[in-house]
């Protein structure tokens, strides 16, 4: 080690002396620590000027940094920086990223979309999100529906039709299913006969005589079921009346009922009280035309076509 560096090491003190001989070593903070501290002070001051920082009475300092986003009315807004605006800005970007797909989607027909593997993949992934956000509360996640509440979209029974145009119409304008109550119009005996007639389509072991009486009643002017459900009891898609001959039930939970008597009772409840519950809201105005188009293809993928 060079001689110049071998100077005597005299410990530094703070310079104060107490009681004649008490001194205090001066051990300053390391320079790197001090530098980091000063740098963070400078950073904090710059931050106060840039971002919302100090509360002042009922308001606060907003900072000079601004953020621009387009709100849901399409108006561009520039406000002081805040996380809500940041979220909206990021949402704008996400919408922009999806735009090429939606542009392509709006120029294609339903069939073209369903045939194009790339577009159909987009429908499956983006549609799943839209469906979960808007449709799943009633139709359940995955579209399986719920007996007595909302129809199953994954089967092949479609009250209002399962073709692209019909699904699109249903989503755009909504639906309202109605069946008048028959309490007081038909006797309990007559309703049991009707129930037996309907159950006979599915080959349940019901009393043949009763089912035959139900058949007569179904097509008579007394009950006049065939007005809506059709002479073949297969329903009419224009008015959304149910197909009574298949094994799919929306309102009367026939498959879950164990005995024939329970199955009859389930059907009779519907006949007695009628239905005014099958309400599907209109989505026009809430979702864009392209979003509805995308959902149409998605729902069609679930089980449409009939």
């Amino acid at each position: 080690m060079s001689a110049s560096k071998q100077q005597a090491h005299v410990p530094q003190t703070t310079g104060h002396v107490w009681d004649g001989d008490l001194q205090e070593y001066n051990n300053p903070l390391p320079n790197w620590w001090l530098m980091a501290f000063y740098a963070s002070v400078v950073f904090a001051v710059i931050y106060w000027f840039m971002y919302p920082a100090w509360p002042i009475a009922g308001t606060f300092t907003t900072g000079f940094k601004t953020i621009t986003y387009v709100n849901n009315k399409g108006v561009e807004k520039t406000v002081h920086w805040n996380t809500r605006a940041l979220l909206l800005q990021e949402t704008n970007e996400a919408v922009k990223a999806q735009k090429p797909y939606f542009d392509k989607l709006s120029s294609m027909s339903f069939e073209q979309i369903a045939k194009d593997p790339e577009m159909n993949s987009f429908v499956l992934s983006a549609g799943k999100e839209l469906f979960s956000d808007n449709c799943a509360p009633c139709h359940q996640q995955g579209g399986a529906g719920k007996v007595g509440f909302a129809p199953n979209l994954t089967d092949d029974d479609w009250l209002y039709g399962g073709h692209f145009s019909e699904i699109n119409h249903t989503i755009t304008y909504g639906r309202h299913g109605y069946m008048p109550p028959f309490a007081g119009v038909l006797t309990d005996q007559q309703m049991t006969e009707l129930a037996d007639y309907i159950l006979s389509f599915e080959k349940y072991p019901v009393n043949p005589a009763s089912a035959e009486a139900g058949n007569q009643l179904f097509h008579s002017e007394t009950a006049a079921c065939y007005y809506c459900h059709g002479a073949d009891a297969k329903g009419r898609k224009v008015i959304g009346s149910a197909n009574l001959t298949d094994s799919i039930w929306l309102w009367a939970n026939v498959p879950a009922a164990k005995t024939i008597a329970d199955k009859e009772a389930a059907i009779k409840t519907v006949i007695t009280g009628g239905l005014n519950r099958g309400v599907m809201p209109t989505w026009q105005g809430r979702l864009s035309t392209d979003q509805i188009k995308l959902l149409t293809v998605y729902v069609h993928d679930l089980g449409g076509g009939q």
């Binding site: 359940q140 995955g142 399986a144 089967d155 092949d156 094994s247 089980g303």
Partner: peptide, 15 residues
């Protein structure tokens, strides 16, 4: 597809 796991169709077939 597990939601739903299977569906009973109008013909009684299972999908």
């Amino acid at each position: 597809v597990r939601q739903p796991l299977f569906v009973v169709l109008s013909s009684g077939k299972i999908r």
